[in-house]
Computed example of a mutant assay.
Amino acid sequence: MAEEKARLSVAEIRNIAADACLACGASAATAKSLVEATLSAALRGRPEVGLPHFIDYLRSFVEGRIDGKAQPRMQHPLPAFIHSDAKGGIAQLGFDLAFEDLVKRARTFGVAIFSQRNSYTAGELGYYVRRLAVEGLVSMAVANAHALMAAAAGGKPVFGTNPLAFGAPLPAPQAPLIIDQAASATAFVNIVRAAADNVAIPEGWATDEAGAVTTDPAKAILGALLPFGGYKGANIALLVEVLSAGLSGAAWSLDAGNFRSGNEPPNVGLTVIAIAPAAVDPSFALRSADHFGRLQELGVHIPGSGSAVEAPNDADEIEIDARLLEEIRGFRSG
């Protein structure tokens, strides 16, 4: 049976979501950062880690996995290196607070790094690189999470889904190039959604508790995700682990707290590397657009390309599962 849908304006969704955050104990700054990142995912990026994942944040505010009042602490150990301690709060707030400084340092030094420890999961990674691409910067973002993924079938979970995102500017009115993908064969939220809808998952996505490959999402939740492409995906997960948890000083995935249970912040890491291509080639965006056009003519899919999406108008509408909408409203009134 198809899920009933509701359509609300951006302004309505923003107000409902912000009120829910505040009702769950978040500060106004945390609520604003989280809601805008959620809307960005819903409208411009990966909707499955937008409003559906927003529920995980609300539950985590209430149950203690996110400190909704946390104020990140920034340090500058090197001129082109910004280090943030999220203090158990959301990842997006630290990035938002450092954003203008990160852009300025990238343009000044050619490259700049933002690395953050001690946060909740980073949410949609495309959010970070999409914003930097609008500023004319090439960037890469990596983040870890608690151990959900085995290195191979039969193994124990050792990595998070450990996603990687990449962004590059293109000339207006084209949207930037955005690549956002997990090291796992699928995102964990897709397993949860399949279990809620009682539908099978493709073989190769996950294993059960015994390490056997399964198509049952309920068994997969108790087991482990699998990397895409076998050992090559596991290698990418390890690379992400070193850059996110290792560089920031956050917990390794084996040691991080579960983002869906417990009452302690998971202490995971996020690292964003921003590069100013105009330092070498002022025509970078135009040259890239020409090349991507050639690739598209040869049948290559260019992620995130197409017409640019302007800042959402408050009157624009978003489609949302009616059940999910009521759940969010329940936090607001609860």
Rank of each mutant, 00 (worst) to 15 (best):
T215F: 00
W205P: 12
E209W: 03
P217S: 09
F228D: 02
P217Y: 10
I221T: 08
K232A: 03
L239W: 04
P202Q: 01
D216N: 13
L222A: 15
T215G: 00
F228S: 05
E209G: 07
L238Y: 08
G230I: 08
G223N: 11
V240N: 13
L226G: 05
E209Q: 15
P217M: 09
L222S: 12
T214V: 13
V213C: 06
A237V: 10
I221P: 04
L222P: 00
L225F: 02
T214F: 07
A212R: 14
P202Y: 07
A212E: 15
L239I: 14
W205E: 02
W205S: 00
N235I: 03
A212Y: 14
A210W: 03
T207R: 07
E241H: 09
A218M: 11
P227Y: 12
K219Q: 14
L243E: 05
A237P: 03
A212I: 01
G211D: 12
V240Q: 11
L225Q: 05
T214D: 02
L239D: 04
T207C: 14
A206V: 09
G211F: 14
I236P: 01
A212H: 14
L238E: 00
T207Q: 14
G233V: 05
Y231K: 14
K219T: 01
G223I: 12
A237I: 08
G204A: 08
E241K: 13
T215H: 00
A224H: 11
K232P: 04
V240W: 13
L226P: 05
A237L: 04
Y231V: 12
A206C: 04
Y231P: 10
I236Y: 10
K219E: 10
A220K: 10
V240K: 13
A237R: 13
E209C: 07
P217N: 10
W205I: 11
W205N: 01
P217L: 12
A218C: 12
K219P: 00
V213P: 10
A234V: 01
A218T: 10
A224M: 08
G233R: 09
A234W: 02
A218Y: 01
T214Q: 02
K219D: 10
T215K: 05
L238A: 13
F228L: 07
L226A: 06
W205A: 09
L222Q: 15
G211M: 05
V242E: 08
D208V: 04
T207P: 05
I236R: 15
G230L: 03
G229D: 02
L222W: 01
L222R: 15
A210D: 15
V242F: 11
P202N: 01
A234L: 05
A210N: 14
G233L: 06
D208Q: 07
G233M: 09
P202R: 00
I236D: 00
A237Q: 01
F228G: 08
I221A: 14
L225K: 11
A234F: 11
V240M: 08
T207L: 07
G211E: 13
W205C: 10
P217K: 03
G223L: 03
A210K: 12
K219F: 01
E203L: 09
T215Y: 01
L238P: 01
P217W: 03
